[in-house]
Design a protein around this nucleic acid. Structure first.
Lengths: 110, 110
DNA sequence: ATGATATATCGCGATTTATCGATATATGTA
DNA sequence: TACATATATCGATAAATCGCGATATATCAT
């Protein structure tokens, strides 16, 4: 888990969008004929408006950062989020960035 | 709070390093003669190995992203973390990226 | 006013990233 | 085998980012 690589991977709107779409495959990719449990077909992400080759390149960046995994099934390659890496990254980033100050105690309301 | 701008700002090791240094000013900038409550002098960050102009540019990126604020005092400009924005960003990123399993999903304004 | 210090901005070259079309590779089908 | 489909890779161009020195601006001190 390389935090710098992940931050770079997230620093492009199309790549972030892909990760967000993959949070709810059944909502965004219901048109896919194959079961969504396998993942989402690479070609599905061309809906972001970029060409096939560009989308392929973005998926490679996400995969190299460890944010997604892929699985070939016949001619198709299905992509899924790598929840373990995503969770580890969020934990790491929070740990790094969060204020070191001891938090003010919550005030008791009524 | 623009999540995309913040992600881009964090996607450079020197800028991330500056934010991390600013978490504990008394630990990293004890050499500063001025009180650290004011913030940390811009020139202090040249310890990352980059030139004065480059450091100034990185500080401007952090400030435009809302991650730090600055305060002029005489010839010096003191930088501090903007804890509110940092916390809001972390909350937003977690909300966006965390696994959507059995959880209401946020909608994203482009 | 002069000079010194701190920071920002400008201008430029170097590097990286983004994007595309074309092509290569892998698989499936007839 | 030949053809179609899905994806990756290649080559080129464009755009963005990075980094620097030089310079401008603002403030302080004398």
């Amino acid at each position: 888990m390389n935090t710098d690589d992940i931050l770079k991977a997230l620093a492009h709107p199309a790549r972030l969008q892909i990760l967000l779409w993959l949070r709810e495959p059944e909502l965004h990719f219901s048109s896919q004929t194959h079961p969504l449990d396998l993942g989402v077909c690479a070609s599905q992400f061309e809906r972001c408006g970029l060409s096939q080759s560009t989308v392929s390149s973005h998926l490679a960046v996400l995969q190299r950062a460890g944010l997604v995994t892929s699985q070939r099934l016949g001619q198709w390659i299905f992509y899924r989020r790598n929840e373990a890496t995503i969770a580890a990254f969020l934990a790491e980033l929070s740990s790094l960035l969060e204020s070191g100050e001891s938090r003010p105690l919550p005030t008791r309301s009524e």
